[in-house]
Structure formats: C-alpha cells, structure tokens
C-alpha cells in the first residue's frame, strides 16, 4: 500500500474527494434506513413504514445522481490518477449499488403493503434472519469502504454464501407452504419475492466490498473465482 495521507496541493480537489466520500456514506445511511423501514413494515404489518420506505427512495435516487454528477465534474476538473481515480470511480459505482439496494427495499415495502392486507402467516417471520444477514452485509460493506478495511470487505463473501444458502432453503420452505396452504398462495408468493430482494441486497453489499478493495489495493477481485480470492486474502 502506497496510498498517501498527504493533502493535495489543490484544496478544491481534496474537498471534492472528501465530499464524494461523505455523500456516499450519507446515501448509505438512507438506504439502510429504507431497508429497515421496509422490513419492520413487513414484520409489524405497518403500512406507514412501508410508505416511508417507498417515499424515501427518491432521496436515494437524488444522491445517486448528485454523486455521479460530482464524480464526472471531478474527473473533468482534476483528471485524478491512481488512488484518487479509484476513489472517484468507486464512489460512483457504490452509489449505483446503494440505489439498487434502496430499490429492493422499495420492492419489499410494496410487497409488505400487499401482504398486510392479507391474512397473517407464520412464515413471514422467516424473513427476519435473512434480513439480519443482508443488513449485516450492507453494514459491513459500508464500513469496509468508510474505514478502508480490506479484510472486512473480504469477509463479506462468506456471509453472502450463508445468505444464499438461507435464501434457497427459505424458498423451498415457502414453496412447500404454498402446497400445504393454497388459500394464502398470494402471500407466500410475495414472500418469495421478498426473499429474492434480500438475496440481491446481499449481492450489492458484496459489490460495495469489492469496490472498497479496489480503492485500497488497486486490485479487481470481481469474478476471479474462489482460488484467486483465497490467494488474495492470504497476501
């Protein structure tokens, strides 16, 4: 690692990089909150929280556009290189992942509103452990970015595998429930989509971790396979 903690000669460049990082962190906090509202709305059958999660998605969308716009401006004005360039690119890509996460939260909230109008089924509780894993992945992905923590980013793969496994298992159980309780088929179907949204959120969180690794180590660990990842982790 040869990254510098020396400030740029151009204070405006330093400020642009700092602001882009801060905007990503603010955006992440709104996306996290939207997810929390959506799941709480689902579990507590609270349509107000669901509405809030859907409405607040607009804020996340605005953040994405603003981070992209500022990133473009930074590329144009300062022609960053090395770590600075990776930081600008990562901010834009992380913003894109956060926007998708918030979209997934919005989808969960929409499903939750519909589920809330139907009879309550015990299987709704199955979403809780999946949400916890997805939320942890998101939290750690953001922390890895904020604290430049490569090992934390690398640890996301393991947790994401657990989430994938839980996702497959839950879908199996929900399919079984559909067969046993066809009256509530619609609810189970909505829940299957919720499970899928949570699994996608895990994937986006992993993407955020990968971008953090790219910023810190200039290494692209996307799609490299398990062996190469293992080798990288041991470096």
């Amino acid at each position: 690692m040869n990254q510098s903690n020396t400030e740029h000669i151009l204070a405006s460049f330093e400020e642009a990089l700092r602001e882009s990082r801060n905007s990503v962190l603010r955006m992440a906090s709104v996306a996290q909150q939207n997810l929390e509202h959506a799941i709480t709305g689902l579990l507590s059958r609270n349509s107000e929280l669901c509405n809030q999660a859907i409405a607040d998605d607009d804020e996340v969308n605005s953040y994405e556009k603003s981070i992209d716009g500022e990133g473009l401006k930074t590329l144009m004005r300062f022609s960053p290189v090395a770590t600075d360039l990776r930081q600008v690119l990562a901010a834009m890509k992380i913003a894109n992942n956060l926007e998708r996460i918030s979209d997934e939260a919005g989808s969960i909230a929409r499903r939750a509103r519909k589920i809330g109008k139907q009879a309550e089924v015990a299987e709704t509780r199955m979403m809780e452990p999946l949400y916890e894993m997805a939320a942890e992945l998101l939290r750690d992905g953001i922390r890895a970015y904020a604290e430049s923590d490569v090992s934390l980013a690398m640890s996301l793969y393991e947790l994401d595998q657990k989430l994938d496994k839980a996702h497959r298992k839950t879908i199996k159980e929900l399919t079984k429930a559909m067969e046993q309780d066809p009256e509530n088929l619609k609810v189970y179907l909505h829940l299957i989509f919720v499970v899928r949204c949570l699994e996608r959120i895990g994937d986006h969180a992993v993407n955020i971790g990968e971008e953090s690794v790219f910023v810190e180590s200039a290494t692209d660990i996307r799609h490299v396979g398990a062996d190469a990842l293992k080798e990288f982790s041991s470096e």
């Binding site: 040869n2 510098s4 400030e7 740029h8």
Partner: peptide
Amino acid sequence: LFSNPEQKETEDYISGRFG
C-alpha cells in the same frame, strides 16, 4: 505507474500532493 505506483513519492507527485 499512473494507476497503482509502487512508491508513495510517485503517487504523491502524480496525484498533485507533492510538497
């Protein structure tokens, strides 16, 4: 050299942190 220099001095110079 411009994406991931080995030396901190190089990174400082190319990214405008020199001095």
